[in-house]
Nucleic acid binder design. Structure first.
Lengths: 192, 192, 192, 192
DNA sequence: CATGAATGAGGCTTCATTCAT
DNA sequence: AATGAATGAAGCCTCATTCAT
C-alpha cells in the first residue's frame, strides 16, 4: 500500500469520524494528510470513491482479523467468544473508524446499498453461520439465527460506541466478559 | 401542534431517513411538505434547529410511550419485557424516524452533544435503572448495569434497523420473543 | 396628512438613517411604526415608493421652511445668511433625515435621477439664483454661480453631518457664524 | 499588487459607484471582473471585507498623493491651495471611487465606524492641522479649525460630485480657482 | 380596513473538481 | 507527479410582496 495513500486514508478517517463525511471538505483532508488537494484525485476518483474505499478497506481489515482468529478454534461457542473479543479489540484500536463506519452504514439506502450488502455478508453472516452451526449441533437454542446474529453485532457495536462517547476509558476485558456472559447465559440469575 | 409544522416534521423525517440530514436540502423538505421554502423558517430557526427539534420531538414521543407502559408493571423482568416490545413497536410504527435517529445519534461529538446526553438519560438510563433494581432484588446477574443496558438498546435498535433494511416484513412478535429469550436466558441451551 | 402615514414616515426615517434603506426591512419599519406589515402597502406602492416619498416629503418640508424665511428679506447677503441658519436648523431638528438624505442622494444614477434633479432645482438652484443676483448687483465676486452654490451646500451639509457623527453636541449658532464668516469673507485674515 | 485582485477592485468600484454597494451582487462583480464567483472569495473574506478593503485602499492612495504634494511647500496657504488641487485631481481621476466613497462614508454608524474614524484622521485632520498652524501664525482667522476643515472638505467633495453628476465636463482648473478664491477670500466683494 | 402567514426570487457563500504550471 | 488557483453548481437563508381572514 502506497504510503501517501495510507496518509490520506488516516487523515480521512480522522476527519470523517469527527465531523462526518459530508461535513468534511477535501481541502481539510488534504491539509491533514499533508498533501495538495489535487493529489487526492490521483488516488481516488472523487469524494464518494474515497468514502467507499475507506469503508471497504476498514471492513476487510476487521473481517480478516476476525476470520483469522476464529479459524483457530472449532466450537461455535469458542468462535463467538473470540468474535466478541476481536471485534471489541478492533474497535478499541480504531475508534475513529468505528464511529465513522457506524454512521455511514446506517444511512443512505441507494448508492451504498451494494457496499452494505457486502459488509453484511462479510460480517454479520459470519456470526449467523456460526449460530446456525451451533443450533444444528444442539448447543444453541432454536432462535432465528439472523436475529441472534444481528443482536450480537448490535450489542458489541453500540456498547463500544457508547463507551467511546460517554466514558473516558474503555475497559475492554470487563466489557467482553459482560457481553459474553449476557449473550450466552442471559441476564436472569439461574435459580437452581 | 400546528398541522403545518407536523407536515414539515413528517417531510423532514421522510427525507432525512432516506438520504441523511446533510444530503437533504431545505428545498426538498419544503417541496415534500407542500409548503414554500420560506415557510420552513417560520417554524424553525434554521436547518440545525429543525434537526434538533425533530430528534427531541421523536425521542419524547418514544420515551413517553415506553414510560407509560412500564409504569403499569412492577417487576424488573416484566418491565424489560415491556420495553423490548414497546420499543420495537415504536420503531415499527416510525421506521423512518428510527433510521434517522440512529444515524444522527451515533457519530460525532459536535453540537448535538447536549441532545445526545438528554436522549441517553431519557432512554438508556431507564433501562439501566431497571437493571440496577433487578440486581439489587437478586433476580439479575451482577453485571455492569450500564453495559447491560446499552447492550439491550443495541440489540433492539440494530435488529430493528437490520430488518427494515434487509427484509420485506418485520415479524415483530417473533423478534420480540427472540430478543427477550436471548437477553434473559442467553443463547446457550441449558444442559440440565 | 394621515397620522398612520406619518408614523410610518417617522419609523422609516428612523430606521433608514441608522442602517440605510437597503439594510432596513419592511418588517422592521412596520414594527417600529406599530402597524402590520401589510398596512405599509396601503400607503405606499412598494419599498421604492416609500423611499421616494420620504425624500420628496423631507425635501419639500425643508425647502418650504427655507423659502418662507428668505422671502422675508431682500438683499442676497441677508438671504444667504438666512439659508445657512435655516438649513442648519432643519438638519438639527431632523438629524436622521439628514443622514438618510445624504446617503440616498449621492448614490444611484438611474432610477433616482429625476428625483435628484428635482431636489437640486428645489435646493441648490435657490442658492444659485441668489448668488447670480448678488453678482449682478455687484456685491458678490464673479465666480461661477453653480460652483459657488454647490460649495455652500457642501459646506453646510457635510459640516452638519460631521458634527452629528463625531461630536456629542451641535453648537448650531457657533457653526452658523463660522460658516457665514468663512463663506462671506474667507479664511484669510484681511491684512489692511 | 496581484493583477487579478486589481481587476476585482476595479470592477467593484465600477459597480458600487453605479448602484451602491448593497445593490451590487457579488455575481455582478465577478462577471465585470471577468473571474468566477468563487474567485472573489480567494481574495476577500466576504462582501464586507471587499468593501472595507476598497475604502482603505482608495483612501490610502488619495491621502498619500495629497500628503506627498503638501510636503513640498511650507506655508499653510500654499498647503491648502495644493490640497484643493490635488483632491480635485484625484477625484477627477477616480470619479467612480469618489462616488462610492461619499456614499459609503456618510450615513450609518455601523461597523464601518472604525474605518470612518481612520479616514477622518487621515484626511480631514490633515487640513485641520494646517488651519491650526495658520491660525497660530496669524494668517488665518480665529475660526473653529474643525468646522473650517470639514467645510473645505465638503466644498471640494460635494462640488466634485455635483459636477460629475450634472455636467458633462469637469473644468478642474476653473473649479479649483473658484474654490480657493471662495475659501480664502470669501464671496463678498471687498469694498475698499 | 388591518393583519401577518405564506411564498419564492435572489443574494451570499461553500466546496468538489479541474487543469495549467 | 504534485500542486493549488480558479470555477460554478448548489445550498442556506432573507425579505419584498401578496392575500385570505
Amino acid at each position: 500500500m502506497n504510503s501517501k495513500k495510507e496518509r490520506i486514508f488516516t487523515a480521512a478517517i480522522d476527519k470523517f469520524s469527527q465531523k462526518g463525511s459530508t461535513n468534511t471538505t477535501m481541502q481539510e483532508i488534504a491539509e491533514t494528510a499533508g498533501v495538495g488537494k489535487g493529489t487526492l484525485y490521483r488516488y481516488f476518483e472523487n469524494k464518494e470513491d474515497l468514502i467507499y474505499s475507506l469503508i471497504q478497506y476498514g471492513i476487510n481489515k476487521m473481517t480478516n482479523q476476525v476470520k483469522e482468529k476464529i479459524s483457530q478454534v472449532e466450537l461455535p461457542l469458542e468462535k463467538l467468544k473470540i468474535i466478541v473479543g476481536a471485534q471489541l479489540e478492533f474497535y478499541d484500536q480504531h475508534q475513529n473508524f468505528c464511529k465513522f463506519l457506524t454512521r455511514e452504514i446506517w444511512g443512505y439506502q441507494s448508492k451504498f446499498e451494494d457496499y452494505i450488502k457486502e459488509i453484511r455478508s462479510n460480517n454479520t453472516v459470519i456470526i449467523e453461520n456460526i449460530i446456525k452451526d451451533g443450533i444444528e449441533r444442539g448447543v444453541f437454542k432454536e432462535l432465528n439465527a439472523e436475529t441472534a446474529a444481528v443482536s450480537l453485532s448490535g450489542m458489541i457495536n453500540i456498547t463500544a460506541l457508547h463507551w467511546f462517547m460517554f466514558q473516558d476509558k474503555f475497559p475492554i476485558e470487563k466489557i467482553r466478559n459482560d457481553i459474553i456472559q449476557l449473550y450466552f447465559n442471559g441476564i436472569k440469575k439461574s435459580n437452581i
